[in-house]
Design a binder for these strands. Sequence first.
DNA 1: ATTCTGCATATTGTATACAATATACACATA
DNA 2: TATGTGTATATTGTATACAATATGCAGAAT
Lengths: 219, 219
Amino acid sequence: MALAEQSLSTLNNLKTREEMVADAIRRAILTGQFKPGEKLDQQDLANNLGVSRSPIREALRTLAAEELVTNFAHRGVVVTTRTRAELEELLFIRMMLEGAAARRGAESMNRAQIAVLEKIVLAGETSNDTQELLQLNNDFHNGIYEAFSQPVLITHIQQLRNKIAPYNRVYLELEGRKEEAWAGHRRIYEACVEADGSAAEAETKLHLEQVFDGILQAQ
Amino acid sequence: MALAEQSLSTLNNLKTREEMVADAIRRAILTGQFKPGEKLDQQDLANNLGVSRSPIREALRTLAAEELVTNFAHRGVVVTTRTRAELEELLFIRMMLEGAAARRGAESMNRAQIAVLEKIVLAGETSNDTQELLQLNNDFHNGIYEAFSQPVLITHIQQLRNKIAPYNRVYLELEGRKEEAWAGHRRIYEACVEADGSAAEAETKLHLEQVFDGILQAQ
DNA sequence: ATTCTGCATATTGTATACAATATACACATA
DNA sequence: TATGTGTATATTGTATACAATATGCAGAAT
């Protein structure tokens, strides 16, 4: 094994089991492998991931604080389910934060960042794979938000999106929604090209409103 | 022991040790008993709270996800410290969310809720005890936000305030800040009386800006 | 004197053992 | 049959034992 690879692997192993377990379960929830309402058995998780219940339990506390799972004392952990009203609240908050972030992003993007964004838009407009589209959607928004240095805001937005993620998988498969979403992305992209913060904010809010409409419709 | 008391006590004991521990440590951080940067020794906590390390560790994972503490693998947990830039970001987010919440609150408060708010304002204007003023400040804002039913938004705001709490204790002791803060509260209160959402939002943002100015000045 | 090396120690991370609670089912009772 | 009660069982919650890592200091090397 090459040294570089070895040290890289060693670095990865520096992550504790608790961290790796939390990442694995979080990923499973975000990708829809574990669905809302599904019970997560600690011993099963431990067996599947090859660790004891200790790091499993600690990881579940982390995920519970992120509201991706809900813990019922003595009864177990389930993937969080959300009412329509709760989703609406989350979507409202997300609109405020992402609107503000888009404004700042559009005002501070450089050419290289815009070029990356353009490639993502083109890829999104032509792709038809749901999994890939979800990834491109993430890349697009992150491409804007990472243009400026507000790590706290970005983290908050990401966590909000995670909370909604289990509910926006169905949405993209609705007729016409995919095209609608990427038309919105293109308008936001164009606002970025012109460094027009107000337009970026307005288009982002409009775009999210359409997305949310689809998500709520799918419930 | 009276039956009512007993059953109440039993209900309280239904809380797991992990929950009680998390509450205790969270409270200690929010009240300034544990200060930013302070290391939290697991065994010490276990001894002081009369439990084993297991519930302590799980509680610390919860608090870490809330960003009240920061975990360094194999090195321990410390109360989270924040840079000025991070505080500014948190304050910015809080302004957006609390502004929106104040608008909705002002538009939906009933007479009883307004009467409660008035008492809080009067108490705040006359009190001089820092601890009490912090509590009254909480009560005032919660009094508005709980007037409407948006539990998700309220939770988010509360968590944001918790993240900042360790840094806003010094502020109230700065000359003139206490009066400034309660003058702001009164203006927000008056906007609520008139059910003027726009004014409530504007006054809340103004109020928070002043508070933030004080917090940042104290750093 | 300063820097490096290696070991001792303390603390955290993980596994396992044990206790407490909730659930389900059998059985009794009306 | 329907309802209630008790007990067995499975799962979670907690304590303890053990492993792994980081830290600090003693002593060596320069």
